[in-house]
Each structure stands twice: as C-alpha cells, then as structure tokens.
Write a protein that binds this DNA or RNA. Structure first.
Lengths: 356, 356
DNA sequence: ATCGTTACCGGGAACGATTGCGTAAAAAAA
DNA sequence: TTTTTTTACGCAATCGTTCCCGGTAACGAT
C-alpha cells in the first residue's frame, strides 16, 4: 500500500502554471507576481501540499537526518541522552535514526554501514566496549562525515567530543567512601580499553593514594561488557570475595555495573552498606527507591545529548571543513544515600524522596 | 561539510559504459554479458559503491523507514518495545525513526506531521494520554498510510493492533491482592479515556465483585499523565488517604504509576507491604531490587514490538489494500514479590534474584 | 521607431537510480 | 547467402524539486 502525496506538478496542472513558477511562488521568489503567489499559496494550503523531503534530499545531497549509535536504548543513561539529542535535532528539522551496538563491534560496524548507506548527514556515537579497530570510523571521518563522540570517545579521531569529568566523578565517589570510613575499596570497572574506564580508574586510584591508601590491583576487576552480561559481574564479585582480606566497599564504574553489583551482593545474602559500601555511576531515577537507596554519581545525560547535537549540527552546516575541534567536559553530581553509610541509620531519611 | 559518495555514473564513466548497463550489471540482469558484469562488480567493489537509498526512495516512492511514536523513550516498557521494533525492522532493511509525544496531544500531532512529511512507509503508535481527537490519524489511515497500534490503541480506527490481555493482567493482580488477605483495595489508574485504563479497570472491578467485594468508586483514582507528573500521583494518594476507611492495598495500572506510588508512600513514611500492599504494571528490571521488591504485572514488551513490526511490514508490503485486520493479544505475567506479602517475612528470599 | 528595463513566467537540465524500448552486431537457422 | 533470432548494450523517461537560462510582453526613454 502506498500513501499518495500531492506534488508541485498537481498544483501546476490545476492552476495552469509551470512547475518552476509554482516552486518559486512557494519559496516566495521576487520574480513571481503577488497575485500568482497568492493563488499558488492558497491552493497549496487547500490541497495540503508538503514538499517531498526525499526529492529535496536528492537534490541538495543531504538527508536532514542524523544517525545515533549507542550500545543499548533500554538504559536510563542512553535514553536520557537520546532525549537530549532528539530535542535539539527536532527543533532544527532533523530526524534521528537510532541503532544499538549491544556492545558488539560487529553490530556497530553493521550499523555504521547501514547508517552511512542511508546517507545520514552526521553521526553521534558512543562506541561499544568491544571495539578495538577504529579504522572504519576514521576512514569515514576522513572522507568528510561529520562525527561527534560522547561518553566512550575515540582518542585517535580528531573531532568534537562530549564527556563528563570522569576522573573527578570517580575521585569524588572514592573520596566519599574513604571519608565514610571504608578501608578497603574495590572497583568494578568497564572494559579497560574504554576511555571512560581509564579515566574513572585513574580518579579512583588518585583518591586512594592521595588519602594515603595503597592501590591493590587485586581489588580492581573488569567486566568486558560493562554489566550487560550479569554473569561477568557475578564473576568479578566472586573474585573480590576470594582473598581473606575482602574489600569493605565497592565503586562501580557504570550504570549496569552499579545495579549489577547490588543484585549480586543481595543474591549472595550480603547487606549494603552493612557488609559492603556501594557507590557507582548511575542515571536511573529509581536508585533512591532501591534497597538500600544507592549513592550514585549522576551524569547530566540530557544535557550531554543536547550539547553533542549542537556540535554536530554546527559541523554539518559549516561551509568549510572544520579543523578546530573541542571536547566539552560536563560535571557529574554525587548523590549520597544509604548505600555508603557505614553505620546503618535506623531511621531512613524520607524528605528528599520527592525530589524528581 | 558533505560526504561525497560514489554514484553509478562514476562507474559508467570509468568503464566506458552507460549507466543502464552498470545498473543492470549490478542487479545481475540476464541481458548483461558475464564479462561486463564481472568488470562492473569488481570495480564497484573496489571503489566501495553503495546505491543511493534516497534516489531509490524517490523512484520507488517508498522510504524503507517506519515511524514510531511513543510517549517517552526513557521508560523501560517503551524502550523494550523499541528494541523489538528495531530488531525486526533492521532485519528487513527498514530503519526506524522514533519520536516522543511526552503525553501531549499537540506534540503527537506535530510528530505525526513530521513523520509523514518525511514520508515514512508506515507508523507504529501508542497514543498519548491526552489525545482525544483521532481525526488526523483516521484521515491518514484512510489515505492509505499503514498504521499499527500497540498498548494504547484507538478503537475508532480499523487496523492491526497489538496489546496484552489487560483485563486479565489487572484481574490476576487484584485477585492476588485479595488472596493475600487485603480487604480494601484501591487502584491508581491512567487517564480514563485510554483503552488500557478501561480494560485494566474492568479487570480490577471484576476481580473485586467475583470475590464478593464491592467496588468503591472513592478508591479509584486517575492520573491524567500516567505517572509522568509525580504530583498527580501524590494528589491521588493524598485523596486515597483522606477518608477514615483507608485502603490497605493499591493496584497501580502503569509503570510510572507503580514506582510513583512507591515513591510517594515511602516519602510519607508509610511502609510497603506493612501499611499498604502494592502491585502494578511494570517492566523495569529493577523492581526486585527495590525496597520492598515489587510484585508486578510484566508485559512481553520486546515481543510486542516484534509482533507490531511484523504486522506493519505485512501491511506495507501488501499489494492490495488490506481490509482484514487482526488484534494480537499477548499474555502478561504476574511476578510475586515482597510488596504484596501482607505478613512481613523476616528472611528475604534471595534465590530468585539472579534470574534475568 | 528603436532600444533598454523591468516584471513574469516557462523550458529543461540536473540529483541517482531503474526500466521499457530500440537496435547494432553476432550467432543461428533457413 | 539470406533471414531470423539472440545477445548485449544504449537512449530516454521517470520519481519531485530546484534553478539556470531563456523568452515575451509592456513601458519609458531616446
């Protein structure tokens, strides 16, 4: 079934004009008489004419659409990012095509090919945990495709990037654990090759050393798929519990890792923050309703999406090749709740629950 | 900046052939000699030729893209649905354009216009709570636009629809509350005009009457935006707590309403399931980690997305106008956890936490 | 009377790909 | 050898739109 739309030809035929005249009348050209314009405009309105964007795309060699690749949509952080992207794109007449890599480099590549063959005007990407070979992306970029990275950025490719201050986020969280009285702080991290993993790890280590605590590599565990596969988190926790000198707190470095840790700890019968303190990056709005309410580092996800999109549009609409790229660094927010309160408060604070 | 792609003309020019020959060679037409084919194919491969989908769209009058309208992406239920939609669409060479109504009829209308002007081949929609006037949608459908509704369907428009057995879901949940010993069961529902709200309310009422309990209209509260605005939920709860004969359990009829109720109850210092039993529709995978773990009615969201997309593609690719429409009804699943356990068990069950 | 302006409008070539039709040359049949 | 058939390719129209060229009036100035 097809959906037949009105074209400029229909108007031309009905009004006994040429298509060029109609086109010009619609674009309010100076060489069309006011009467003709009025005629065309009114008729176009009457039969509900809308220019065919596909024909325009062909003519102007641009599709007015941007591609977005994230690892998964069903993740608060990314869906908030997408929200931000969408709001800006929409306001500028662009549409957004979303695809998911599901942390697979293959799927990411496929999506990339798909999106470019669909001739998107630009791309906003957070690479998968698995991606090691950026040559395809690099080639794309070299051939002129505007790209903006966010979250998991690629150092090898020079373009606009949007991140948060991961170092500081991790530093603050770890410091908070230290100040709360935790002595042996472990971390469950993302795939070590990832930019965010490195930065967060660096912040974690810095906080430890600056407070006179030594960095114990056996307390650093990695989950290759960033918590998307729960058994990886389980494995990490199992490892952490092995030695006699168990940690007394965990800093989790990604959304799914944070809730994953809680899930595993609880399933093993441990209590938080009794047996372990827990803090992590997370953007779920349910963290305060969890048992226990989780202390989290929250990223300004919506804003990140907005910023990334503005940068991309700037790139797309620039007449000359852009060579001056910037990396926007937004700040995280540490929300302190029960999960890092070493001495369990019997009376739960409820006043702040209504916020958001 | 533009991203210059290789065209069929480039190949033709380089090989001293006509564009038609190249086109036919690429499509493996019988009237092209094997040598020429080989030549073209190899050269196309070499310079990384990809047919321009926009030119194809213009020629074939189809864009191979489908539009999706949901109220918000950052909602587990909808992002799971989108996941399902995307997986099927992708496998069939379609791309998905997503937009959000944010429960506003105006935004929904705008999105609709935008998507159709972008000439999508079909639409998958869950209408907003606010939408009362379906004439635009109806007109679109009458003019031949393939549409599939899911979740919040529109009775006035005859087309494929995908829902769950809302009646049974609500009935089961309410019955579960009754069997757990709750005596005065309230419900917090969606906008009353919504199909899902009606069906769930009917299931709730049926369960009550069938178990010899009377339906008390003062125990039925509505939230016009389905929990998206928390103050509406707060207002509803406040109303429920007014009369002396307070309810002892709440059945919430949407994802955000369920977590919203928990949020409000906890912020007011009530305990669940001590002061109130709570069960509701929800697709978050965090419900078992909440305090208390929530009993929920879970919808097969991913599958719903798949089914809806298959139906839509069927509609799009049908040669003749389809007049025989079907409504697929999937089944919900009741997951029983702490929030409906009238007598608080001291030892929390942890074995099932690892599932999913 | 001739020329230059100005005001309006149409023809037709793009954009990239497909496809019906026409046709030259080569191969097969007469 | 002539006719017919097959093979293999090119021409041109098409999709909807824009825009570069024109073209033709009407009118004033010379």
């Amino acid at each position: 079934m097809k959906f037949e739309a009105v074209t400029i030809k229909d108007i031309a035929k009905a009004l006994g004009l040429s298509t060029s005249t109609v086109s010009r009348a619609l674009r309010d050209s100076y060489e069309i008489s006011p009467e003709t314009k009025k005629l065309v405009l009114e008729y176009a309105e009457k039969i509900n004419y809308h220019p065919n964007p596909i024909a325009l795309s062909l003519k102007e060699r641009r599709s007015r659409s941007i591609g977005v690749i994230v690892c998964e949509i069903a993740n608060s952080y990314f869906s908030q990012i997408i929200n931000g992207i969408e709001s800006i794109a929409y306001n500028n007449g662009y549409n957004v095509i979303i695809s998911q890599s599901r942390e697979s480099a293959d799927r990411e590549m496929l999506n990339l090919q798909y999106l470019t063959s669909r001739s998107v005007d630009g791309l906003i990407i957070s690479v998968s945990t698995e991606t090691k070979d950026f040559s395809y992306l690099k080639e794309l970029h070299d051939r002129g495709m505007p790209i903006v990275f966010f979250d998991r950025i690629v150092d090898e490719i020079e373009t606009h990037k949007v991140i948060v201050d991961n170092y500081k986020g991790a530093y603050d969280a770890t410091t908070h654990l230290i100040n709360s009285g935790y002595k042996r702080i472990a971390t469950v991290s993302n795939a070590p090759a990832l930019s965010i993993a490195k930065e967060r790890l660096a912040g974690y280590k810095a906080a430890l050393t600056e407070h006179g605590m030594e960095v114990d590599e056996s307390l650093i565990k990695y989950c290759a798929h960033g918590g998307m596969i729960l058994t990886e988190v389980e494995e990490a926790i199992k490892e952490l519990l092995k030695p006699k000198n168990k940690p007394d707190a965990i800093f989790a470095s990604a959304d799914k890792l944070t809730t994953g840790c809680l899930r595993i700890l609880r399933s093993k019968g441990y209590t938080v923050p009794g047996d372990f303190g827990l803090v992590g990056f997370s953007n779920t709005d349910l963290t305060e309703l969890l048992d226990p309410p989780l202390s989290v580092i929250r990223q300004p996800a919506f804003e990140m999406g907005e910023v990334a999109t503005n940068l991309l549009l700037q790139l797309i609409e620039s007449k000359r090749p852009v060579t001056d790229f910037e990396t926007k660094v937004l700040t995280t927010e540490l929300l302190i709740r029960e999960s890092t309160r070493k001495k369990i408060a019997k009376t739960k604070p409820v006043a702040s629950l209504l916020k958001e």
